[in-house]
């Protein structure tokens, strides 16, 4: 008999064990989300759906809306700022320029959220870089309040999400058939028209997936709203932390985590549907 699947079980077993552990952790969140909160205790009571009905209060709605709003703003600004960089990164004529652009735009991804959030605290604080600079130039007398505002949070989050956006856009731009652009130019389109009529529409699926990925990613941001928002800007992650570690209401924290997970999954499903349709429309045949 031909041995059809050498190493199959040996290689499968560790993956299955890992998947089971991961699933168990997620199941614990689900399990806690339908348990009763016992005030003053980390133990939980019996089955209840009360945690889910509790969401239906204005303060929680506002946190959810704020989370959506901040994530959407971040996604849009991230797209606007990333597109030129991604375009330059793909189309730069010199090799070293491309390498430099890749390094500058991608390495921030790997310094970690704490380092990056902290660096923005140094930038935005009332004694921070921006305020010191502006005061030195005598443009302002009193420090601008950017820390502890939505603006500050968005400014940091946009920078935070740009590497991912740039990767996605660069991939989309590099897949544009240059002959299409040449054909358009040959038919009399100016460089501007080539970009707006050919290149940009062809990268629309990439832009869309970039927006959704950054949106989903930002919705689960924690340290930036925590430290730069400083309690004045609450996103769902901060609420989970507050409920879990200050109020010690683990069931409600679990419910909120679950909602965040569903929102992230939901936006991804939405993206698949939208980009799928777009790509079908853009396909030549």
């Amino acid at each position: 008999m031909i041995q059809r699947r050498p190493f199959f079980l040996t290689f499968l077993a560790p993956a299955v064990v890992t998947a089971v552990i991961l699933a168990a952790a997620l199941f614990e969140v689900l399990q806690y989300s339908v348990r009763e909160f016992v005030p003053g205790s980390l133990n939980v009571g019996g089955f209840t759906l009360e945690n889910f009905t509790r969401i239906n209060r204005p303060i929680y709605w506002w946190v959810l809306l704020d989370t959506f709003y901040i994530s959407l703003l971040t996604a849009i600004f991230s797209l606007l700022l990333s597109y030129p960089v991604a375009f330059a990164l793909v189309r730069a004529k010199r090799d070293w320029v491309r390498s430099l652009l890749v390094s500058l735009s991608i390495t921030p991804l790997f310094t970690g959220e704490i380092v990056r959030t902290f660096s923005w605290m140094l930038m935005l604080g009332s004694d921070g870089f921006i305020n010191s600079l502006l005061r030195k130039l005598s443009l302002i007398d009193l420090p601008l309040l950017i820390m502890y505002t939505r603006l500050g949070v968005v400014v940091a989050l946009v920078q935070f999400s740009m590497p991912v956006m740039i990767i996605l856009l660069a991939t989309a731009i590099s897949h544009v058939d240059r002959d299409c652009e040449k054909a358009a130019a040959n038919l009399g389109a100016s460089p501007g028209a080539v970009f707006w009529r050919i290149t940009l529409p062809l990268t629309l699926p990439g832009m869309l997936s970039g927006i959704v990925v950054v949106f989903a990613w930002t919705m689960s941001a924690f340290s930036t709203p925590q430290l730069i928002g400083g309690g004045k800007v609450l996103m769902i992650s901060n609420l989970v932390y507050l409920q879990g570690f200050s109020v010690l209401n683990l069931p409600f924290a679990a419910t909120l985590s679950l909602i965040a997970l569903i929102a992230a999954l939901g936006s991804l499903v939405l993206m698949k549907a939208l980009t799928g349709r777009l790509e079908k429309r853009l396909a030549v045949r």
Partner: peptide, 29 residues
């Protein structure tokens, strides 16, 4: 193999699942 899709989805999911949800899950676990 059968179940490959499910296994892949589970093992890829940490890319999508918020880290605080995962961290919280492992805390509870």
């Amino acid at each position: 193999f059968r179940g490959r899709g499910v296994l892949e989805a589970v093992l890829w999911s940490p890319l999508i699942i918020p880290h605080f949800t995962l961290g919280f899950g492992f805390l509870l676990l």
